[in-house]
Simulated assay, not measured.
Amino acid sequence: MDQMEVVQPKFTKLLDGMMGAEGPVFDKDANFYMVAPEVEKNGRFAGQVLRIDLKNSKSSILCEPVVDGEGGIPAGCQCDKDNVLWISDMRLGLITVDKNGDFKQICKEDKTGRTMQGCNDCTFDYDGNLWITAPAGKIAPHPYERSMEEPFGSVYCFTSQKEMLLIDTGLRFPNGIAVLHSPDGRPQTLIVAETPTKSLWAYEIQGNGKVGQRKLWGKLPGDTEGGPDGMDFDEENNLLVAHWGSGFLEVFGREGGSPHTRIKCPFSRTSNLHFRKGTKEVYVTEHDSHGVWKFEWQRPGKLQYCDIISL
């Protein structure tokens, strides 16, 4: 294996001290949002979707999702072309939130009638399909379970036809998720992080909600606790992966394997990352101080689904 390059860019802390830090995302109007999944009130889950004022380094609560008296654990976030936020939630499954903070649970069962599992992260492909990791057990009101030891974690696709399809299961805490597109913009490969095994799995995308068999795509280095969390592509299809517990972001080429570059962070528990549209700015969330930081990468990020006008 070739020697990995280690780089240490300048990180700027934008905000810290929140109740949690995950799911950074920009909407179509360049407003910045994230989620705080770890909040509890009176012994009950009370996770938050946060609106972040980057200019003034302030956060405000957009909503605290509750369904049938059960509070949520929002863990991932994406924006669609209507400027609606889609939230993957460990207790509530999949919810949407508009700019006024009004939220809606999308479904309680998949297409076959099976109870949804709690969700962690999500990503849109350019065809408008939302791919979702689900490392938790059945959604509320069922008991809260996580697949860190027993491999019952799953992957879903909420298709552009509004069908919730279970596409794979048998994973140990599937976490971050990303889609590699072909040069002409077709969804090509789904990549799923399995945190405890430090593995990145790939599925050939064969259509809306249809994939081939799971294959090992990449492996994170080291023997520290933790593993891959959130991820995002740059414009040359390098995949930047948050390596929770290591203090690094790992950078893989489009063919996977081992990372060719490690980005040293000023914190260890890196949770997720997201590019600002049309820039080299990368926004990183972390659990050391429950903060959000930014740094400049070598190239801009790949356009998100909400930013695509035509292909």
Rank of each mutant, 00 (worst) to 15 (best):
K81W: 05
F233I: 08
V39L: 13
R146Q: 14
E70T: 14
T285Y: 01
P300C: 02
V179W: 05
W86F: 05
I95F: 05
Q3K: 13
F103Q: 04
T96R: 03
K215M: 08
G113P: 01
Y126P: 11
G118T: 01
P9H: 00
L240N: 10
V67K: 12
Q8H: 08
Q298D: 15
E40Q: 14
D2Y: 15
E235N: 09
D29Q: 08
A140D: 03
V211R: 00
Q188R: 14
V97S: 07
G230Y: 01
D89A: 06
W201V: 13
G47N: 02
G222C: 02
S310F: 12
P259Y: 00
S268M: 10
L180M: 09
M19T: 13
L240V: 12
D2F: 14
D89R: 04
A46L: 06
C119M: 04
Q206R: 10
G245M: 07
G76F: 00
Y203I: 15
C157M: 08
Y156H: 06
D125I: 05
L240W: 06
V179F: 04
K111P: 12
R214S: 08
N31P: 09
E296C: 10
C122H: 07
D229R: 06
K138A: 12
M90I: 12
G230T: 08
F248H: 10
T12R: 13
M34Q: 06
D110T: 05
V84K: 08
E194N: 03
C122M: 07
K162D: 08
T12G: 10
P183E: 12
E40A: 10
A178S: 03
H260A: 10
D234V: 04
Q161K: 12
L15W: 01
L92K: 02
D125C: 04
G137T: 00
G222W: 01
T261Q: 13
K13W: 08
M1R: 15
A136Q: 07
M148R: 15
S289E: 09
K28G: 11
K28S: 12
G209K: 03
H274G: 15
A140Y: 02
S88D: 05
R44S: 15
Q188G: 07
R51T: 13
L54S: 05
S160H: 06
L165H: 05
S258L: 15
F45V: 11
K108I: 13
S268V: 11
Y305D: 07
G43K: 01
I106K: 09
N83W: 08
L14S: 06
V241F: 08
L14M: 05
T96A: 06
H260K: 11
N100T: 14
M19W: 14
P228Q: 00
D102H: 14
C77F: 10
D127L: 14
I87P: 00
T133V: 00
L94P: 03
H181G: 05
K55G: 14
T197Q: 07
K13I: 01
E150N: 09
K198N: 06
E194H: 06
E255Y: 08
L249F: 09
H290D: 15
L273S: 02
E38N: 08
P300W: 02
C119Y: 07
Y144D: 12
G71T: 01
N272I: 10
P221L: 02
L130T: 09
Y156M: 09
N120I: 07
M164Q: 04
R262G: 11
D223V: 15
T159L: 00
F124S: 04
C77Q: 13
P174C: 01
V282A: 01
V282F: 05
P37H: 05
T189L: 09
D68P: 13
